[in-house]
Amino acid sequence: MARVVVDVMLKPEILDPQGQAVQRALPRLGFDGITDVRQGKRFELEVEGPVDGDALARVRELAETFLANTVIEDFTVRVVEADGVERAVSGTQAPTEGATA
């Protein structure tokens, strides 16, 4: 079993009024210095069997056709190994370097 994480974010050019509302609330709560907030979605998929190229291609397809609306959203796909190590795989955004959890 491995976990594949799909993060979905509005494209930078799409207005995010929810993120703006969160950002505007911060000074009131005493959190200064946050200049921008963007809100997105995170999907954690538990994948049966090995997460090989085929499995990842299927996850990518499901992210592209269903989890994200690529007209307005970007997505990234990451694999989280059993030891907690993350591996960036693909997406519509440039994947970030495999950070450790």
Partner: peptide, 17 residues
Amino acid sequence: LCESHLLPGALTRNDHL
């Protein structure tokens, strides 16, 4: 219809929330 790609574009949250 937009999600089906029968029409272009998308509908997003009202700008005033």
